[in-house]
């Protein structure tokens, strides 16, 4: 079982976390005024990278924070984690 480094709680077993889609910095929610096809792409399309990925995870069984994890989808190696933009990294 993977260890996910929560910026607030430290490394914890994967079962404490849920995966929540791609990193919002690279997959941002469109403006409300954006065309419908932009919205469709945002909600439905995924890069689905094989290899290095930046993903959104949530420490549901701990601090309940959403944060970004750099993870390899082939080897499951976790390179880093960081809070969302604008949130101070407690470490």
């Amino acid at each position: 079982m993977m260890l996910i480094p929560c910026p607030w709680c430290g490394p914890r077993p994967r079962v404490e976390f849920t995966y929540g889609g791609p990193d919002p910095s690279t997959h941002p929610r469109p403006a409300d005024t954006a065309p419908l096809d932009v919205w469709t792409r945002y909600v439905y399309e995924r890069d689905n990278p094989k290899g290095e990925a930046r993903e959104l995870w949530r420490h549901g069984a701990g601090c309940r924070q959403w944060f970004v994890v750099e993870r390899d989808t082939v080897t499951h190696a976790v390179a880093a984690s960081e809070p969302l933009p604008g949130v101070e990294d407690p470490r």
């Binding site: 079982m1 993977m2 079962v15 989808t73």
Partner: peptide, 13 residues
């Protein structure tokens, strides 16, 4: 397992 993976091997939980 609940997260993207191409590893063809899963976790024990």
């Amino acid at each position: 397992d609940g997260y993207p993976s191409f590893a063809q091997r899963g976790e024990t939980p």
